[in-house]
Amino acid sequence: MRGPVPLLAPAYLWLTLAVFLPLSAMGFFSLVSDIPVGGRAWTLTLDNYAEFLARPFYAQLLWRSLELGAVVTGLCLLIGAPCAWVLARTIRGRWREALFILVILPFWSNGLVRVFSWAIALRGGGVLDWAVNAILPWDVRVNLMFSWWAVVIGLVHSYLPYVILTGYVAMQAIDQRLIEAARSLGASRRMILWRIVLPLSLPGLAAGAVLVFVPVVGSFMEPRILGGRAGTFFGTVIEDQFTAVFNWPLGAALSFILLAVVLAVLAAAAPILRRSQ
């Protein structure tokens, strides 16, 4: 064989094994009436997708998950972009290495451990409550546990490093001379930020935003542990189908609807992503 095929073969093989096969298995499950194990009778059907339309609460929860994804992504960008800038442009040498390790550190621990440590911090009588009361002279009750905000805090903490790392790479590549030139031509700090720094770091930040948005929309562990009664999202409903009632077909169909909606959101955001290339 000639040409690029032999060289590309390992990549395609990997894609087939890791992406295409599991996805097609789930695609198949989403189209059957019952899971084909233990001699159960099954037929091909679209009922699982019809179920989504028949019960409006699925769409309501999907919207709630998209909202959560947008808020978490927004907060990650708001916090992550300045962090990335400081890391890339202001701090040098050993300090940068040390801070870099601190940013990546959460990745080294298990996600569940991080979520449970937030549970300890956020609950009434927890670390946060104690700290706020130690500083403020009047009595305040801080009990964020089992609320929508607890879920947001846990998710932002989990996914923030993605934005910082991708933003860092993009910002480090910005040519310092561009900024100096702008400054020498009399551009204000704000103008430099809006006309040079942001457009040039947009590819990194956009990549980070995608990396955050996609998993957050489907998240189920953080909402379940930190959300309490407020922790019902599209992801937890899908998880219930797999673990609570063994209804894989409906779970798979809901997953594919989520996938389609996320792809649609990304397609709608494509002009921004493309402009940033």
């Binding site: 019960r55 019902t232 409903v237 219930d240 609570a244 009632v245």
Partner: peptide
């Protein structure tokens, strides 16, 4: 029952 329960949880959000 699960659909009923999920619907109630969703409505309570």
């Amino acid at each position: 029952f699960l659909a009923l329960w999920q619907e109630l949880k969703a409505a309570a959000q």
